[in-house]
């Protein structure tokens, strides 16, 4: 396909679509086309592939430095820009399977759960027997960790998240775990509910997204207000009120 047959179509149009004087390429040819393609690709690559992301990085660093760096938080649950003091990201879940922490949702990342360098879901089909087997094991684990709690388990606490890095779980999932945490950390359920409420957010503007609890922040707060193991002889429902934000 060459661009040299322009002369045959040299008639001019002044149709409504092309309000300009239209003209077909006078010479053109393959070389001119290659040149245009190569130069345009290069310029666009520089513009959209280098200038644009770099400029955005620069602006973001000025306007939203914490978010741009990955929303890192320190052990106190406070935002930090220092990678050294960071213990995680407010946006990225971490795995907890000790019974004295709120358990997050199951994660299917490989090789370990909540591998934030390799996100992903289980991709198990809804009728896959493996999925059912996993659910059964998780039910068992939850029941074992809290013998006697026969409340129905909220679905999100049994199912692995899409990213494997879900920082949140439903309020129901957190509530389900209150008896276990309360017992192990010697806290009253009411206190725990309040703590959960503190780390509950959404839906945004009352409309967007779901109401969820940030598990990492909740667990960090737990450690601050009621460290585990509780000090020997500590009174029930002790609270180090000074550390609660």
């Amino acid at each position: 396909m060459s661009a040299t047959d322009g002369s045959a179509n040299a008639d001019e149009s002044n149709s409504p679509g092309g309000r300009r004087q239209t003209k077909l390429p006078r010479r053109g040819g393959v070389l001119a086309m290659l040149r245009a393609a190569l130069v345009l690709l290069t310029l666009c690559s520089v513009l959209t592939g280098i200038v644009y992301p770099l400029v955005m990085t620069g602006i973001a660093r000025v306007l939203f430095p914490w978010q741009a760096a990955g929303s890192l938080i320190n052990r106190k649950g406070q935002p930090t820009l220092s990678r050294r003091s960071a213990i995680g990201s407010a946006q990225i879940g971490q795995y907890f399977n000790q019974p004295w922490y709120f358990w997050p949702r199951p994660s299917a990342t490989s090789p370990v759960p909540y591998n934030a360098a390799a996100s992903g879901g289980s991709n198990l089909g809804p009728t896959n027997p493996t999925l059912i087997a996993h659910i059964k094991q998780r039910v068992q684990a939850l029941r074992n960790a809290d013998i006697g709690n026969s409340a129905p388990i909220p679905v999100d606490l049994l199912t692995s998240s899409a990213s494997g890095l879900d920082p949140d779980e439903s309020v129901a999932a957190a509530y389900y775990q209150i008896p276990r945490i309360a017992r192990l950390r010697r806290m009253s359920p009411a206190r725990l509910k309040k703590l959960i409420a503190r780390y509950t957010s959404g839906p945004q503007f009352g409309l967007l997204g779901e109401k969820v609890v940030n598990v990492l922040e909740l667990n960090l707060a737990l450690d601050r207000v009621a460290p585990y193991p509780p000090a020997p002889g500590a009174p029930f429902d002790h609270v180090r009120s000074s550390t609660v934000r």
Binding site: A68, I87, Y101, A117, N219
Partner: peptide, 29 residues
């Protein structure tokens, strides 16, 4: 970015976990 999407050219972040854990077979597959 304002909502928490990173925009940085720095390397991946390594953090120490609050509590080390032993991964159970079921979660990872």
């Amino acid at each position: 970015v304002s909502q928490g999407v990173p925009q940085t050219l720095e390397r991946y972040v390594h953090v120490k976990l609050v509590e080390p854990f032993v991964a159970p077979a079921v979660a990872s597959g």
